[in-house]
Design a protein around this nucleic acid. Structure first.
Length: 542
RNA sequence: GCCCCCGUAGCUCAGCGGAUCAGAGCGAGGGACUUCUAAUCCCUAGGUCGCAGGUUCGAAUCCUGCCGGGGGCGCCA
């Protein structure tokens, strides 16, 4: 795997270890300073070593600089000690060219994780109740969950995308009652679903009033799920599995889990209900599993569902929940542990709210009240790419204000087009060069190019070299939004390169056309991959 | 009362397992189209990173308290 920055960091650590006289070294930083005066890369390694060695950091930095010079040879232009003891590294053009060549040799795997640490991961997301269309709020879950899965896969894991269908319980009964009412031309009950879509569902279920309750519920859920699937498909989200709550009851899985909790003596009766002693595992109060009327709670089903996922043998089980479920985390984790689950394996991520702003007003969305904007509407309005970008730009634990007027009006200014435009522009340049010419350039000895690199070219190459680390960070921190920032930076750096360095006809200004074509191709691939990880298209022309 | 998230440039926010991170986009003002695609580029503006303590050689970043905003606290799902 080509990772020149990682290799450079390893060299720094090895040199530091030697200077200290062996032994492990606390992982130093290796950053790209904002000011060119501070070199291509800067490390704090000397300052980390100083306390243990009892020597001034600057003196240690000098010795590491010397050692690095020997270790890296021509790769290192020079190393300077700065400030309190930073070591600023200026890499040679040769190093940049060789590194660039490395990104191309890696092919499609550039930036991908190696499979040595591959995990089987289950990611459950969206899981919106099948009682209405997918809302924009669920769209955020869809965009986030799907992008996270793409990133986790690219980082070297095996991922299952899963949707949990709450196809029983009170909300289904209210949904059915609403359909029945609409089927007879009446308004739904007050606590029912008021949305106009219920009328359409009723029309697809003629004679709804006469159909048996359970059967009607199943068919209504089928219809809604079909729509959910279609909406998600248009949004480029494909679930590997839909898990039914009802099926867990039918199979006896729920009853079995309750028995096991009882065997383990985590359950007790009180006030006619059955409680789970979640406080034994850190929850602030115990929770009801079975109501005094004999009905199981949603929590009871959900325990069985998570136990089902656990039994499937994943290394890691991730669920993305809405902010309104945050109070639910402690009890689910408690139940997981009560059944013998490893708390390390269960990850419950809370997605903060999406608020819609329209006409300067904050609108709360309510599926039951029929007041919501559907994902389909928004996608139709501004397109899949802009919608996904919009929903992915912000960290999942930050509330998102979605200004509809802005989203529509600014559709041309949306930063997503900036990255896509850079990709299209590169594609255009490569078309101009011609397929045969590009092939020849990629086969050429780019690593050995003698071109004196323009600073824009150096910046761009260094940016491309950040890609593997960006993928790792985005995966480990469950943070797809980092890639929106990164791909924008790549596009910006490319724009500067485009301005300063002629590609086709580079020789006219003393440049190496092979090298510059290779730079374009590497950039194009990194942008395309980044966009793909976000679930966005990488157009060849715009 | 308890819990979660947030408070960074006029606006929307990134950065938050400490240092060389004070940044991006939009908005505002000015400039560049006989272009390897101007859906672009360049310049200007402006912030005591909510406040107060603490830890540290060093804090937007970690800890505590406070203030402000949003959300959640059911034998609903």
């Amino acid at each position: 795997m080509s990772d020149p920055v990682g290799d450079l960091l390893s060299a720094v650590v090895a040199t530091a270890s030697a200077v200290r006289g062996g032994g492990p070294v606390q992982p130093p930083t290796l950053e790209r300073p904002s000011k060119p005066d501070f070199g291509d890369y800067s490390t704090n390694v000397a300052m980390l070593l100083a306390p243990g060695m009892g020597q001034p950091p600057r003196a240690i930095a000098e010795r590491i600089a010397e050692g690095l010079g020997e270790r890296l040879g021509n790769d290192l232009g020079r190393a300077e000690v700065a400030g309190p003891g930073f070591l600023n590294l200026f890499m040679s053009d040769a190093w940049c060219c060789r590194s660039l060549a490395g990104t191309l040799e890696a092919g499609d795997a550039y930036g991908a994780g190696d499979r040595s640490g591959a995990q089987r991961i289950n990611v459950e997301f969206v899981s919106a109740n099948p009682t209405g269309p997918v809302t924009v709020a669920s769209g955020r879950h869809a965009a986030y969950g799907d992008s996270l899965c793409r990133i986790l896969e690219f980082a070297g894991n095996d991922v299952d995308r899963e949707y949990y269908v709450n196809d029983r319980g009170g909300q289904i009964e209210r949904f059915v009652a609403s359909i029945r009412a609409r089927g007879q031309g009446e308004d739904p009950p007050e606590d029912g679903y008021q949305g106009a879509y219920v009328v359409e569902v009723a029309q697809r279920l003629p004679g709804a009033a006469e159909i048996d309750g359970e059967k009607l519920a199943r068919r209504a859920v089928e219809i809604m799920l079909e729509e959910v699937r279609e909406t998600l498909a248009r949004f480029r989200v494909h679930m590997d599995r839909f898990s039914s709550e009802e099926a867990l009851h039918d199979s006896g899985a729920v009853a079995e889990v309750l028995d096991r909790l009882e065997e383990r003596e985590h359950v007790y009766p009180l006030d006619g209900a059955v409680w789970l002693r979640t406080t034994s595992f850190g929850d602030d109060k115990d929770r009801v599993l079975m109501r005094s009327n004999g009905e199981l709670t949603y929590f009871g089903s959900d325990i069985a569902y998570h136990e089902d996922k656990r039994a499937r043998g994943y290394d890691r089980v991730i669920a993305v929940w809405g902010a309104d479920h945050h109070g639910y985390v402690a009890r689910m984790r408690a139940a997981w542990e009560a059944l013998g689950g490893d708390p390390e394996q269960l990850e419950l991520l809370i997605m903060q709210l999406v608020s819609l702003i329209e006409g300067g007003q904050r609108a709360q969305m309510s599926k039951r009240g029929g007041e919501f904007v559907t994902l389909d509407d928004l996608v139709e309005d501004i397109g899949v790419d802009a919608t996904r970008w919009f929903l992915l730009q912000r960290s999942h634990d930050t509330p998102l204000d979605l200004d509809l007027d802005l989203a529509r009006r600014r559709s041309q200014d949306n930063p997503v087009y900036y990255a896509q435009y850079a990709h299209a522009r590169i594609a255009s340049i490569l078309r101009r060069a011609g397929e045969e010419r590009v092939t020849r350039a990629l086969a050429a000895d780019v690593a050995g190019s003698a071109e004196e690199l323009h600073r824009s070219a150096r910046s761009l190459v260094k940016r491309l070299l950040e890609f593997p680390e960006e993928v790792t960070e985005a995966a480990e921190r469950r943070a797809p939004h980092r890639l929106t920032t990164y791909v924008t930076e790549v596009a910006q750096d490319f724009s500067a390169f485009y301005r300063d360095c002629k590609v086709v006809g580079a020789a006219e200004e003393g440049g190496d056309e092979d090298l510059r074509i290779a730079t374009c191709e590497s950039t194009r691939r990194v942008i395309a991959r980044s966009l793909d990880l976000l679930g966005l298209a990488a157009p060849a022309e715009m």
